[in-house]
Deep mutational scan, measured.
Amino acid sequence: TEKEKEVKRLAKERGLSPDQVRELAQRAGFSPDQAKQIADEFA
């Protein structure tokens, strides 16, 4: 999704850790499970 792409782009730009990616995703409105899946891509 657009929102997911945006979260991943920000995460890459900022060099976020997987935990930070998960927090960012949840703040963007993703469920905890979705946020974990997104964060796992950065693990």
Rank of each mutant, 00 (worst) to 15 (best):
residue 38 I to E: 01
residue 37 Q to F: 05
residue 15 G to E: 06
residue 15 G to Q: 09
residue 23 E to M: 06
residue 3 K to R: 13
residue 35 A to H: 01
residue 42 F to E: 03
residue 5 K to E: 14
residue 16 L to H: 02
residue 20 Q to V: 04
residue 1 T to S: 14
residue 25 A to R: 00
residue 7 V to G: 02
residue 41 E to T: 06
residue 37 Q to T: 11
residue 35 A to L: 02
residue 12 K to E: 13
residue 11 A to F: 02
residue 25 A to V: 03
residue 37 Q to R: 15
residue 31 S to T: 14
residue 39 A to E: 03
residue 31 S to W: 04
residue 39 A to V: 04
residue 6 E to N: 10
residue 6 E to K: 06
residue 36 K to A: 13
residue 21 V to R: 00
residue 7 V to A: 02
residue 17 S to G: 08
residue 33 D to V: 10
residue 4 E to H: 08
residue 31 S to H: 06
residue 10 L to Y: 04
residue 41 E to I: 06
residue 21 V to M: 05
residue 36 K to G: 09
residue 14 R to Q: 15
residue 1 T to R: 14
residue 15 G to P: 00
residue 9 R to H: 07
residue 32 P to H: 05
residue 6 E to L: 15
residue 41 E to A: 10
residue 7 V to E: 03
residue 39 A to F: 02
residue 7 V to S: 01
residue 23 E to H: 07
residue 13 E to T: 06
residue 10 L to F: 04
residue 7 V to M: 06
residue 29 G to D: 01
residue 35 A to N: 01
residue 21 V to K: 00
residue 18 P to K: 11
residue 34 Q to H: 11
residue 4 E to V: 15
residue 42 F to Q: 03
residue 28 A to W: 12
residue 23 E to N: 07
residue 26 Q to Y: 04
residue 23 E to A: 08
residue 3 K to V: 11
residue 35 A to C: 05
residue 33 D to M: 08
residue 4 E to I: 15
residue 23 E to L: 07
residue 40 D to M: 10
residue 16 L to N: 02
residue 26 Q to G: 07
residue 28 A to M: 15
residue 39 A to I: 02
residue 17 S to V: 06
residue 12 K to N: 10
residue 13 E to P: 00
residue 21 V to H: 00
residue 41 E to N: 08
residue 8 K to I: 15
residue 43 A to E: 14
residue 26 Q to K: 10
residue 6 E to Y: 12
residue 4 E to W: 15
residue 34 Q to K: 15
residue 40 D to G: 05
residue 5 K to Y: 08
residue 41 E to L: 06
residue 32 P to R: 03
residue 14 R to M: 15
residue 20 Q to W: 05
residue 16 L to S: 02
residue 42 F to I: 13
residue 18 P to L: 10
residue 43 A to D: 10
residue 1 T to W: 14
residue 27 R to N: 14
residue 26 Q to R: 11
residue 31 S to E: 06
residue 40 D to Q: 10
residue 20 Q to R: 05
residue 39 A to S: 08
residue 10 L to S: 09
residue 3 K to Q: 10
residue 40 D to K: 09
residue 14 R to V: 09
residue 22 R to G: 06
residue 38 I to F: 04
residue 22 R to L: 14
residue 35 A to Q: 03
residue 33 D to A: 14
residue 37 Q to A: 14
residue 14 R to G: 14
residue 18 P to V: 12
residue 26 Q to A: 11
residue 7 V to Q: 00
residue 22 R to A: 13
residue 13 E to L: 11
residue 41 E to P: 02
residue 29 G to M: 00
residue 41 E to H: 05
residue 3 K to S: 09
residue 32 P to G: 05
residue 4 E to T: 13
residue 20 Q to I: 04
residue 30 F to M: 06
residue 7 V to I: 15
residue 12 K to D: 07
residue 19 D to V: 09
residue 14 R to F: 12
residue 2 E to P: 08
residue 27 R to D: 12
residue 37 Q to G: 07
residue 31 S to K: 06
residue 43 A to S: 11
residue 1 T to F: 14
